[in-house]
């Protein structure tokens, strides 16, 4: 058996439904394949540490941070970017439309990644609670909106009425308590007795 070790690799990736191929350096990050090889500039880079999620795209339907995936790792797979969601600016995908209706974006830089993360979230959890939306988007940072309207947009896109689901009262969201009973942090204390 011989396995080749290569300094240049040919990749074939289906992006937004179209076959793409290129010879690339193995170190080429998927986000740069999308932006610089294919010219799809919606997907942004906001950090160096897999923290901000601005580069989130779908690989085979699941959200990933394309700054932490090599293009060659996506060889043979299917990638969806925000450009692939809506056919054009007048026919917005339901998630994108919800972001507009709820004013879930301001400067727009986090938006492509946020929208893709939200699409993936609803794929796994079609009717999330507000808390589940917040934790489901924990890997995507936004500096402009305070997330309030992003959460509304995702709830709305899930077919729920944000006014009914979003909780702003001290009593209604006991699950956010820093130590509800013996818990110590929202979402991060689990156990058989919890």
């Amino acid at each position: 058996m011989t396995i080749s070790v290569n300094t240049s690799v040919k990749v074939g990736i289906t992006v937004n439904g179209e076959e793409t191929t290129a010879d690339v350096e193995p170190r080429l990050l998927l986000v740069h394949y999308l932006r610089d090889v294919l010219g799809l500039k919606a997907t942004n880079v906001g950090c160096d540490t897999t923290s901000c999620g601005a580069c989130t795209v779908l690989v085979d339907g699941e959200s990933v941070k394309s700054c932490t995936v090599l293009a060659v790792q996506a060889d043979g797979q299917s990638v969806t970017t925000m450009e692939g969601l809506s056919p054009n600016s007048t026919e917005l995908h339901p998630m994108a439309a919800a972001f507009r209706a709820e004013h879930g974006l301001q400067c727009g830089f986090c938006t492509p990644g946020m929208v893709m993360a939200a699409v993936s979230l609803l794929e796994e959890n079609p009717t999330p609670t507000e808390r589940e939306v917040r934790e489901g988007l924990e890997g995507n940072l936004c500096r402009c909106t305070g997330y309030h309207n992003i959460v509304r947009a995702v709830l709305s896109a899930s077919g729920q009425n944000p006014d009914a689901v979003q909780t702003t009262s001290v009593d209604a969201d006991a699950d956010q308590s820093p130590a509800g009973g013996v818990e110590s942090a929202p979402g991060f204390s689990t156990g058989s007795g919890a």
């Binding site: 500039k41 919606a42 997907t43 942004n44 925000m82 450009e83 969601l85 809506s86 054009n88 600016s89 007048t90 917005l92 994108a96 439309a97 972001f99 507009r100 209706a101 004013h103 974006l105 400067c107 727009g108 830089f109 938006t111 492509p112 929208v115």
Partner: peptide, 13 residues
């Protein structure tokens, strides 16, 4: 709703 958004939410800013 914002006039900026259709582009921001399709091909991106």
């Amino acid at each position: 709703v914002r006039t900026e958004d259709p582009v921001f939410l399709s091909r991106g800013a």
